[in-house]
Structure formats: C-alpha cells, structure tokens
Design a protein around this nucleic acid. Structure first.
Lengths: 213, 213
DNA sequence: GTCTCGTGTAGGAATCGCCCTACACGAAGC
DNA sequence: GCTTCGTGTAGGGCGATTCCTACACGAGAC
C-alpha cells in the first residue's frame, strides 16, 4: 500500500484529488495539508511514501520547501504537482530533491502511474514536459530568458513580481538593499527589460506565477 | 436533475470536480471543456442548467467569455470558479452576467450547495468573499474600483502598467512628475494597493489587458 | 449663496532605488 | 596553476519617487 500525503491549499482541488486516488486499490491518502506549516507538522507525525506537493501554497513552499523536506530523516518521495508546465520550475524542483513532476493538465491515470513510479524509487516527469525540457536544454541559448537566472535572481524576481519593494526584500533576506538592487538590474538585463512593470507583465505572459498569492 | 457543464483547463482538477459532483444524486455532469473554444461549441450542442466556469483558460475566457455566454439564447446560469478570491474580479463577473462566485478554497459541500442555488435561479457568493466585498467596496456598490478612477488617474494607471516611469509620464503629459506621483498615490489608494507591481497584477487579474497567450 | 468634495496641479523634504564600481569565491577553461 | 566568468555581496553618488502639504476650480449639496 502506498501512503500518500497531499499538500495543496485549494480545498476543492485537494478533495478532488483524494477522490481520484481513492479509485486506486494500492494507494491510500494518509493525510493532507493546506499550507506549508501544516505540511511540516503532518510530515513529523505521519509516515508516508509519497508527498504530493503543490508548488504554490501559503507558508513555506516551492523550491525552499522541497529542500527542507528532502533533508528530513525518512523523507518521503516528493511528487510535485503544478498548474504550469514550466521546464524552469521542474528542473529546479528536481535539483532540490523532488522525485517527480506532474502538471494539473495530466490525465488522472497518469497521476496514479506517477505516484506508483516515485513510490518505487524511480523518477517521473510529465511526458510533455520532459519533451520540452530535453528540447530546451539541448537548444542552449534558445531557452527562455528567465531560465538563465541564478537562484538568487529568481528568488528576487518572484518577490518583485509579488509586489515587495527592493528595501523590504533586503530586510527579508537579510542582505543590503544595494545587493537586491544589483540582482534586480542583472535580472532585468537578462530578461531584456527595464522596469518593474515590465517584469510583472513578463511573469504573467510567461505564466510563471499564480497571481494573488 | 441539475445538468452541469464543467469548463476548466486542468484535466486533473476537472476530473476531481467530476468525482465530487458524482456524489450528489441530483447533479449530473453533461459535458466538459478544456478551453474557451471547446466550451462555446459544447454550449451550442449541450443543454445544461449550470455552467461551472474557470476564469483562466486558453481561448476566450474571463469577463469577456461570461458576457458572451450570458448573451446566448437559453444561457445557463454561470457559477464562476476561481483560484483567487479577488473581490474586484468577483464583482466584475457578477456584473457581466454570472450568477455565482466560488473559490477553489471552498469545501466540496459548499460547491454542491452553490450549484443548487444558482440552478434555482438564485445567486451564490463565497461567504468569505462576500464578507470582504461588503467590507472593501461598501454596501451595494458593485462597481469595480478602477471605475471610480478619474480620467487623469486612469490615464496614468494605463501608462504605469505599460511600463512608463513617473518622470516620463510627466514629460509626455506636460505636467510635473510630482503631479503624476500624486495621481499615482491616489489611484493606488482607490484600488487598495501599494506598489507598481501590485498595479500591474491588478490590471492583469481584472483583465483590463488581454494577455497575449 | 456658501460649503463641501473631488480633481488637477505642484513644491520641499525625505527616502528609495538605480548606476557605477568593487571584491570575494567557486567553477570552468587553458 | 592561472585566468576568466558568473554570482553574491555592498558602498557612494545622484536622480527618481514618495510623502506631506497646499491651492485653485468646478460640481453638487444644503
């Protein structure tokens, strides 16, 4: 029996996934979490083989959450579930310790297959996504510009898009605002943009982030 | 029997919702659509009482789609389903012809209740959302905040969103940058926002711009 | 007719953020 | 091994922006 923990903030989606998983005889949902803090509490108390993890949820989330989970003793296999099929995010997630990457575009049967695969210690990547990853990685500089951003730049990119000021980013990350500003300038150059407004528009057009988080 | 059509682009979410609805005896899913074009085709061929509509999907979507659907002969009741609980978007959706507004944070039973309510010709708004709407917008005023902007403020709003700096706006309009800044502060207050990034996000979420996806 | 209120307009002070410059450090190249 | 490059880190100077304040003017309100 594969024990699965579902981390997904939208109740409706979470319940829907539970319903879908209940169709499989070899999969059992042993817990769920609606935000990052609840998730870490659940992980401490509930043993499971697979964690179904949404990338965007309140509290600790995303790449950082994956790193923390992967570092836990008896860490479950992590199957990332996301709305967008961004190669960028996928490769970062896998690098951070995730075992698989599925999008919400997937067929339900594919999700079951993905869970079984990562539970067995193998990797799973959404086929369409894997295709694009291979293609884009092979193309070198034909990759979308945002994939050339460094970790730090990407982190600041996200914060800027979500409306946090340069000064406050500095405070949150405990670095000088000057440093944040430098990262901002560099990432703007990489993306060939000039203003913060451009940045937000870029993020929306590339559908990198979920609005309203 | 309430016949429901589901318009939602993410297969997994769509299937999950189908599973949830199948638990109710009085609700029947008669069709589904993964993008705007498929949706309009389905609406022509399939009669239904309630359309469960995701605001963000490929093809015709959002407020524009709601207007078009509401204008159809024998238009179904529209229950909007969204990830975010944005009051602005909700009021615009209702004004455009939607009968209800539920978020994906809702409990499954609330979704069933919402479907039954709109099927009966009544309105449904997510309780938490309704609360915020009343609080943020004042009783009865269902107008989106950006409609309360003055001509000048709206003009500067557009320029800011398209990436023009305060100084350059001043030059273009032949007024002081200080004046532009004043307008900016006032319009941000009206929209209950704080930064330029928020402004651009708002514009996208309220779909004042058509993202070229 | 006067009195608000919203709007368009700025100035001065303070702050923020950009730009240039710089340096340390690890990875990759030669 | 030495060099180059990308990255993360800042400081100083200065222009850009905000914040507070102010005033004129037209539209309604009373």
């Amino acid at each position: 029996m594969i024990r699965v923990l579902i981390a997904e903030d939208h109740t409706l989606v979470r319940e829907g996934i539970k319903q879908l998983l209940s169709m499989a005889d070899d999969i059992e949902v042993v817990g769920e979490a609606s935000d990052g803090d609840v998730l870490f509490a659940a992980l401490r108390e509930t043993a499971c083989e697979v964690l179904l993890l949404d990338m965007t949820m309140p509290g600790p989330h995303g790449i950082e959450a994956i790193k923390r989970i992967a570092a836990l003793p008896q860490a479950p296999r992590i199957l990332v579930l996301t709305m967008h099929n961004e190669t960028q995010i996928a490769s970062r997630a896998l690098k951070a310790g995730a075992s698989g990457f599925a999008t919400k575009d997937s067929e339900p049967t594919m999700l079951l297959a993905a869970i079984r695969k990562v539970a067995a210690g193998r990797r799973y990547i959404d086929p369409a996504l894997a295709d694009r990853m291979v293609f884009e990685m092979g193309m070198g500089d034909a990759r979308p510009p945002h994939e050339t951003l460094s970790e730090r730049e990407y982190q600041i990119f996200e914060l800027l898009v979500s409306g946090v000021s340069v000064t406050e980013i500095g405070e949150r990350l405990s670095i000088s605002s000057k440093t944040v500003s430098t990262h901002k300038i560099r990432l703007l150059q990489k993306l060939n943009l000039t203003t913060t407004a451009d940045l937000v528009r870029y993020a929306f057009e590339a559908q990198l982030f979920t609005p309203g988080v």
